Simulated scan of single mutants.
Amino acid sequence: MNLAISGHHVSVSPALRDYVASKLDRIRRHFDQVIDVNVFLSVDKLIQKAEIHLRVRGKALFAEASDENLYAAIDLLVDKLDRQVIKYKDKRVGFEHDALKHQPVPT
């Protein structure tokens, strides 16, 4: 899983980077086929905003959350993304197909 964290009007400290990575472990526990993750953190006056773009095979998931505290925004973001990943995984498991069965050719 490729992880890219960037910030707008906020410096991404190693502590913040570790916090985001530890929260994303929860996503990886539910679904291990994540291709890459882009996290975008921003500050606009008093509102802290976190966005995430998660690519899995066949789909791209997006979630965003905002709060007065950046850590709380990240928590909300991961909760939203976790629900999306579980829903995607359930839909994907439901579409497994059996092998084609050969029907006898009528003569």
Results as ranks from 00 to 15, higher is better:
F62V: 11
V34E: 05
D67C: 07
N69D: 15
D79K: 07
R29S: 14
D25S: 10
E96P: 00
Y19I: 01
K59W: 03
R55W: 01
K59C: 06
H30V: 11
A65L: 02
V37I: 15
F40S: 11
K45M: 00
I86Q: 15
D98I: 07
I27T: 08
V78H: 05
P14Q: 14
D82V: 03
P14A: 09
E68G: 13
V34D: 04
L81S: 06
I86P: 04
S11M: 03
I52G: 07
A60N: 09
K91A: 14
M1S: 08
V39M: 06
R83A: 14
K80M: 06
H9M: 00
Y71L: 11
D82W: 01
L70N: 01
Q84P: 06
Y71K: 03
F62E: 11
H102N: 02
V34P: 08
Y19H: 15
P104Y: 10
M1P: 04
G7I: 07
L24P: 00
D98W: 09
A50S: 14
A63P: 03
A72T: 13
V56K: 01
A72H: 11
D98F: 11
V93H: 11
I47V: 14
L24H: 09
H102W: 05
I74R: 02
D98E: 12
R26E: 06
D90F: 03
S66M: 12
V105S: 11
S13Q: 05
V78D: 04
V34M: 14
I47F: 00
I74A: 08
K49D: 04
I47P: 00
D25V: 07
Q48A: 05
F40K: 10
K91I: 12
L61Q: 08
K80A: 08
A99Q: 10
L77I: 05
G94P: 02
R28P: 00
K59S: 14
I27M: 09
L61P: 07
S6E: 12
K89G: 07
I86R: 15
F62G: 01
P106L: 05
A63D: 02
V93S: 09
T107S: 03
F40V: 12
Y88I: 05
K45G: 00
I74H: 02
I27E: 03
F62R: 11
A73W: 04
D25C: 03
N38T: 10
T107M: 04
I5G: 04
A72S: 12
K101R: 13
H53K: 15
F31K: 06
R57K: 14
